[in-house]
């Protein structure tokens, strides 16, 4: 009788191993490739035989990659801040204030997030030109809100709806303005949800490619995904795999670190609705 559990445990661990391998291998391969130079790049290795940081050095020498990272950080942080601020306020009214057309408004917000990016690309381009934000990081922030906001508004509205109504009423009896109710009562209770949605918005903004490619012109305004795609070698027939892999590793690391830091919060945020605030 003791065999059956062992076999099933073995099967379970094999399955876990397969999934981890599937998820981690591409990243692992990028890391070991980024440490290789010259013709070694084109040899298939599964273990890091060389530890050469040459690719990382040339990455920063050949183009303004530091500037690109800074751009990405700026854009992503601004997107997170603006969308959390707007969506917290929107979520308050959408979840707590009864007004005509509330359902329609929520539906519209959801619909916006369903448009493929390409569909809004040309219209958005005109808009950004008209606002004088072409080749400007603020233009990117503005464009990214179109896909982060629907998501953050919906998530925060759902969470805010689940906070007990009496809390708000107690605050009203305490003579508190709606602004204070949101900032002093709701936001402290919602912060696990805010961290979760903020992190997801950050990742979206960090990885975005199409808008970033279209709305920027010069190297010093580009964000990391575009910069990586446009890394070129010495001639048009040379693809600098080493540099590209080094850049990929560099832009993945911050996201992984963020997720690890906030991992517990994300879980808390995802399950917060199940518990009473």
């Amino acid at each position: 009788m003791s065999r059956a559990p062992t076999v099933s445990a073995l099967g379970f661990h094999l399955a876990v191993l397969a999934i981890v391998l599937y998820a981690v291998f591409p990243f692992y391969y990028a890391v070991i490739t980024s440490l290789k130079t010259g013709s070694a790049l084109f040899r298939v290795d599964y273990f890091p035989f060389s530890w050469d940081l040459h690719n990382y050095v040339t990455l920063f020498q050949q183009q303004p990659f530091g500037r690109n990272i800074l751009n990405s950080v700026t854009v992503a942080v601004l997107v997170v801040v603006v969308s959390l601020l707007l969506s917290a306020l929107a979520a308050y009214s959408l979840s707590r204030v009864a007004f005509r057309g509330r359902g329609l408004l929520l539906g519209t917000i959801l619909t916006v997030s369903m448009f493929p990016q390409v569909a809004v690309l040309s219209g958005m381009f005109e808009l950004i030109r008209a606002l004088g934000l072409y080749n400007n990081l603020l233009g990117l922030v503005f464009a990214y809100l179109i896909f982060t906001l629907p998501f953050t508004v919906w998530v925060l509205t759902t969470f805010m709806r689940e906070l007990p109504k009496e809390l708000e009423e107690a605050a009203i009896l305490d003579g508190v303005s709606p602004w204070t109710i949101v900032t002093r009562i709701f936001l402290p209770l919602l912060w696990p949800a805010m961290v979760t949605t903020g992190l997801l918005a950050f990742i979206q903004a960090w990885n975005e490619f199409l808008f970033a490619l279209t709305f920027t012109l010069t190297d010093d305004q580009r964000t990391v995904p575009v910069a990586i795609a446009l890394i070129s070698g010495g001639s048009r027939y040379e693809l600098p795999w080493g540099n590209i892999m080094a850049a990929s590793v560099l832009v993945t690391v911050p996201v992984v670190v963020l997720v690890l830091i906030f991992q517990r919060r994300i879980i808390a945020g995802l399950t917060a609705g199940a518990l009473k605030g």
């Binding site: 009496e166 107690a170 009896l173 305490d174």
Partner: peptide, 15 residues
């Protein structure tokens, strides 16, 4: 508004 009525309320769920 409630805050200017000179009242205080104790809720069932304490709130």
């Amino acid at each position: 508004p409630p805050a200017q009525r000179g009242i205080a309320m104790v809720f069932q769920s304490y709130a």
